[in-house]
């Protein structure tokens, strides 16, 4: 074609650049489309549940999840938080929230404290049985709690720790993820620091408190977020070890929500259940969103 010929002779062809720009633009549109679809894929179930939690029970019973907004929102959340239920009359959303917080904080703090101390010993001390202790601790990375769940349960019950916060939290700490994490970090701390400290006459306690802990601040924060979320989200262990309603956590309460869905002796409290589901989800999600950079750092550093 003649037209094409004339154009092809002119060196920086405007048609080619527009075409390229167009192609680039189309690619960007596709990229955004994929990301938007991905974001919707993640959001969709939660948003629907949130919306449904503003309806009454019959709405869900009749037609499932709802698009839209109704007027039962406050009432449902108030009931989820403050209405005592269960058969001891001592359980409401608030008491479960309290237990969840105790589990989340207790686990995160306990784990960080214990594993920092252990990692400090392993990295900074020369002593007999060092290799042995290393292996004793790191073998625990091999077996998740789930595979030794029954005997763990027996041991904790046998110690009389069923339905106690100690029984709930301590067995979860019995793994070396935190120790491993701090070991890696301590090893990246410049050796000169220890030398300098020794020259200054600082002992191991002073070095730990004055130098190592301040240096580890970001790492502690990052690990704290990960461990808090991990502790908060525990399900199997709390389900087994807490049979006393006053000890239920929010995530443990999910089991009761689902039981009430299938309970045949009364109309199931669907939407209050959804409200409680949202309450269960919110705190860890907010923490992860707000402390995103720490959390991502902690997560991705931990495998190195």
């Amino acid at each position: 074609m003649a037209v094409t010929d004339t154009f092809s002779t002119s060196p920086p062809s405007p048609a080619v650049t527009t075409k390229k720009r167009f192609r680039l633009k189309r690619e960007t549109v596709v990229d955004h489309a994929i990301l938007i679809l991905g974001a919707l894929f993640m959001l969709f179930p939660v948003v629907l549940t949130l919306m449904t939690s503003s309806y009454d029970n019959l709405a869900f019973a009749r037609s499932g999840l709802q698009f839209g907004w109704s007027d039962q929102f406050l009432e449902n959340y108030e009931r989820a938080m403050f209405e005592t239920s269960g058969f001891t009359g001592q359980i409401d959303g608030l008491s479960m929230l309290k237990n969840s917080l105790i589990l989340g904080f207790g686990f995160a703090i306990g784990k960080i404290a214990i594993s920092m101390l252990a990692a400090y010993a392993i990295v900074y001390f020369r002593f007999r049985f060092a290799t042995l202790s290393f292996w004793i601790i790191f073998t625990t990375l091999l077996l998740p709690l789930e595979v030794r769940i029954l005997p763990s349960y027996e041991v904790v019950q046998g110690l009389g720790m069923g339905n106690t916060y100690g029984g709930l939290i301590i067995p979860l700490i019995a793994s070396a993820t935190g120790t491993f994490f701090f070991r890696q970090f301590f090893r990246s701390v410049p050796e000169e620091l220890v030398e300098a400290a020794r020259i200054d006459g600082a002992g191991p306690v002073k070095f730990f408190i004055d130098i190592l802990v301040p240096l580890s601040k970001t790492m502690i924060a990052a690990l704290f977020i990960i461990m808090f979320v991990y502790g908060w989200n525990q399900y199997l262990w709390p389900t087994l070890i807490t049979t006393d309603e006053g000890m239920f956590t929010l995530v443990r309460g999910i089991k009761n929500i689902i039981q009430s869905f299938t309970d045949s002796s009364s109309v199931p409290e669907f939407t209050v259940g959804f409200a409680l589901t949202m309450i269960t989800m919110l705190p860890p999600v907010l923490i992860v969103i707000f402390f995103q950079s720490w959390f991502v750092k902690g997560l991705t550093e931990s495998d190195k």
Partner: peptide, 17 residues
């Protein structure tokens, strides 16, 4: 942010959804 927050959702909560 939109793609990562579900990390914090507990498995049983995902189950209820």
């Amino acid at each position: 942010t939109l793609l990562m927050w579900v990390y914090a959702v507990a498995p049983p909560v995902a189950g209820i959804l």
